[in-house]
Every structure is written in C-alpha cells, then in structure tokens.
C-alpha cells in the first residue's frame, strides 16, 4: 500500500530504524522522501547513520523498524552506488571496471563498448580505457568509480562521501563535474557528506542529521541552487544556515 508522500517520491522512508545485531542503534524514526530529480544531501557528524540510510536505500541492509518503499522497479540496474573509496578492481583496466555492471547483466565486451565509452566521456576520461587503477591519481580513480555507477543509467545515484579523501582542488573540480553529470543524465542523487560547504554547493535539499541514535533533525531546501558561484552572497548565507542547523543538531 502506498502512502501519501508527494507526487514524485522515488523512495520513502517511514519511521525507519536500524539496529545492528551487536545492539547498536544506528537509526531511529527516520522519515524521508527522496523526490525524483532532486539532489539531496545527508549532512551530519560521523556516526549519525548517514551511510546506513544509503545502504538501506540500496537494499544492502534491511530496516529493523518502520518501512522503506521504493517506487521504481529495481532489477539491479536502477541504482548506482559510489563508495567512499573508489573501490575499483585493481586487476582490471579502466574499461573492465566500468564494464563490470554491464557484464553482470550479461552483455559482451563488444556490445557494451559504446556505453562504456559514453560513461568515460561523461566523467572526462575518454581514452583512458587501457589504464590500470594504480596508474591513476585519486581523483581519476573516483571518476572511474562514478563512470561505473552511471554506466547503467540509474534512476538513483547514491554517493557515500565520495570526495572525502581528495584534496580541495580535485574536490571542487569533481563537485562541478557532478552537477553537470546530474543535469546531463537526469539522475536523482542522494549524497552523503560531512562538509557543510559541499552540501550547500551541491544540493537542492539538505537533510541535517544528529547522532545517538541517528536521526534527521531538520531539512533545508535550497530554492535557488547554484545560481551563484562559491563566492556569491546566497551561497554564503546558505552555508551559514546549514552550519547553524548543524550546530543545533549537535546540541540536541
């Protein structure tokens, strides 16, 4: 039975809780709608259950309480996942790594080649097919990882602090590229970060979380996303608003 949750919610979480067998309560009473086409950021301190929400949405873990409703058919192609680390297979070339999701769907190398080329071009790595992960920089590996997540054209792209380990220059570049990718592919993005600036820069909506147990404290909608640059007054104001919300969340 579908519950009322806005016209275009792709995924709805209703009173979701997650308790691990060891007895740790990672999440309690989480209500969240993920709307088609949005760029939602989950922002919060370490250990507030941000990554747990992503894993639940991806179906990698099961909820222990409440319910999680997905309103799209998931046949193993609807969701792309980008981990904190690039998580590439070191024994495979760039092509092999991006080809993997297609290969697992039974495609041959030949028939998959156009899709792989396109995904690599999208992340600015055209012509790097034959390189091996160890030959690439951290930023380039992350691009390969993103290309892999996009190669099946997923409805929903889940990203778990993908740029946390990168230097600021690479991170800014990838932030901009991610926004472009989102526009080009039309994917809905759920992005986990603990950077206030990143959340303010990327999102159309920020869900601020607190820990002990993990929960969503407040949501901030960015009405005028990315109209200005990182220097604009609107961006500064949003950063301040998010920062204040986070401070409140930590106090609770």
């Amino acid at each position: 039975m579908l519950k009322m949750s806005g016209p275009h919610a792709l995924v709805s979480l209703r009173g979701v809780g997650k308790t691990y067998p060891a007895g740790v309560t990672a999440l309690r009473g989480v209500d969240l709608d993920i709307r088609a086409g949005e760029f939602l950021t989950l922002l919060g301190p370490s250990g507030c259950g941000k990554s747990t929400i992503l894993r639940l949405i991806a179906g990698l873990d099961r909820v222990s309480a409440g319910e999680l409703i997905r309103r799209f058919e998931d046949v193993g192609a609807a969701i792309g996942f980008v981990f904190q680390e690039p998580t590439l297979m070191p024994w495979g070339s760039v092509f092999d790594n991006v080809f993997l999701p297609l290969r697992l769907r039974g495609m041959t190398r030949r028939s998959a080649a156009p899709a792989v080329d396109e995904a690599l071009a999208l992340v600015g790595l055209a012509g790097f097919h034959k390189a091996y992960p160890r030959e690439l920089s951290g930023g380039m590996r992350m691009r390969v990882s993103i290309a892999r997540a996009l190669v099946l054209r997923p409805r929903l792209l889940l990203m778990d602090e993908p740029f946390a380990a990168l230097d600021e220059i690479a991170r800014f570049q990838l932030n901009d590229d991610l926004l472009r990718l989102k526009d080009e592919t039309g994917a809905t993005v759920v992005f986990v970060t603990h950077s206030i600036y990143e959340s303010a820069y990327l999102s159309t909506r920020v869900a601020v979380m607190a820990s002990g147990p993990g929960r969503i404290v407040t949501e901030i909608t960015n009405d005028a996303p990315r109209e200005g640059s990182r220097d604009s007054a609107a961006f500064a104001a949003l950063c301040q608003q998010v920062s204040e919300a986070l401070r409140q969340a930590m106090k609770e």
């Binding site: 894993r55 193993g76 297979m89 697992l104």
Partner: peptide, 22 residues
C-alpha cells in the same frame, strides 16, 4: 574488499559470477 562485494550484491551478481569475477 567489502565494498566490492557490496557492489556485486547491488548488481545482483550470482554466487558463481562473484567467485569468478571477484
């Protein structure tokens, strides 16, 4: 790598293919 195993699970890879490819 745990994340890679999760990735294979996400793409619904069979046990046999996970053994062979991962």
């Amino acid at each position: 790598d745990r994340n890679l195993s999760d990735l294979f699970a996400l793409y619904r890879a069979s046990g046999w293919r996970t053994l062979l490819l991962l």
